[in-house]
Nucleic acid binder design. Structure first.
Lengths: 227, 227
DNA sequence: GGGGGGAAATATGCATGGAAAAATCTGCTT
DNA sequence: AAGCAGATTTTTCCATGCATATTTCCCCCC
């Protein structure tokens, strides 16, 4: 009997399947930061034994999405404000490097596609739609790197930053971000490497400021709430 | 009964112990790139079960020191020439960032210690001694970062680069490297951030060229050998 | 009523058994 | 003698049992 392409996930191994599922749940926010990841519970939910669950959790811990405390269990990481700042510091330099790489072999078709997407975005665009396209755009940049380590690290950092941001973007910032994207795209398409790098730094710096000020306001709100 | 401080490694867990041992063996070269890591064999050698060995191996795979091929096993990674180049590309930007961070709160005592170490190095210094001090110096820089993600990544990259370099440094290059170290140290100690960053870029670029030209010569030698 | 101590319950960490896939070996055919 | 097919063996991968550490809950004491 031939093996269906839809059969047990093309036999990539249970561990990998569990890993993907867990990661998606964490990144999409259906498992919230701070939640405990119980081996037994997850194993039952996914109808597998504890072993692949355990290995998937440890793999997630290596990427930083999960924090382990020995003999106590695994918890979805809650990045601190400093973590967010530190992550952006890295992302800035690494993404500039990625853009620089891109300028040698620009994926012109993809870039033009995103150009047309961002061109028609206005303040009336829904924030959800913006967030989706924004992530896809940066993800595209990461995948286009010829440096596989750079790709890995940027994807990793993006996931961690995701954990800090409860999906919200200030409406007023969208126009800024969109213009930033267009500036980066145009600079790459016209072969202006230096300009592309500058615009990337600007864009990510603005993004960083936006997130940090948002997080700061949230944290003071929370403190009031606790009182 | 009181638990001895020397007892099973202060109970950090078998997994961690196996991980450390394996990593040391790989980084120090006692297990060579390309070697197969057999769960059973290693478990017997270390007198533990296969479980902690297996988990340690998977952890090493996440750092890149080990490469897994599903259903076939784990092998110590053999970085390609492009890998080496890519790793140095990342190291350059990240280590500059680290040095920049250091300039805010320079660990002056440590720096002065290393200054005196490198000051007395000459072409007569053994390459082994140089390599040891070189690694310690860069390692110190990494640990001094206030950005924990940066520290992690740089340590990781350094380990991987280690895998490319079979310990050898050209004698003639040592003086260059030593002078580079002194320039970086002095710039940091005198608070010249921009200069420190420039010198770091120069130093790592030279180091990269040196390794790459060495690897290229080796690879052609090997080809001749195979014939 | 609140707090501390101890026993039961629960979860992690390690060991080991069993299934499936890959590698190896053997024997047969050409 | 070389190559291929089938069987054996070995190894990874998943499941599960057992031990120990932690948590929880209950009872006793203050």
């Amino acid at each position: 009997m031939e093996k269906s392409a839809l059969s047990p996930a093309f036999n990539q191994g249970l561990r990998q399947i569990v890993y993907e599922k867990l990661k998606e749940a964490i990144v999409l926010g259906s498992i919230k930061p701070g939640s405990k990841l119980s081996e037994i519970e997850l194993a039952e939910q996914m109808a597998v034994s504890r072993t692949p669950v355990r290995e998937a959790i440890r793999q997630l811990a290596q990427t930083g999405l999960v924090t382990l405390t020995p003999r106590r269990g695994a918890y979805v990481t809650m990045p601190s404000l400093k973590d967010a700042s530190d992550l952006y510091e890295l992302r800035t330099e690494l993404e500039i490097l990625a853009v620089e790489n891109l300028c040698s072999f620009p994926p012109s078709d993809e870039l033009r596609r995103y150009r047309s997407v961002f061109e028609i975005m206005t303040d009336e665009t829904s924030t959800e739609r913006y967030v989706i396209e924004d992530r896809a755009f940066h993800f595209m940049i990461y995948q286009s790197c010829t440096n596989r380590f750079l790709t890995m690290m940027l994807n990793n950092i993006a996931d961690l930053i995701n954990l800090c941001r409860p999906f919200s973007v200030e409406r007023s910032a969208i126009t800024d971000f969109t213009l930033g994207h267009l500036a980066i795209i145009d600079a790459i398409l016209t072969g202006k490497t230096t300009k592309a790098k500058e615009e990337t730094r600007k864009h990510i710096t603005i993004s960083k400021e936006s997130l940090l000020s948002y997080l700061k306001s949230r944290s003071t709100e929370d403190q009031e709430y606790i009182k």
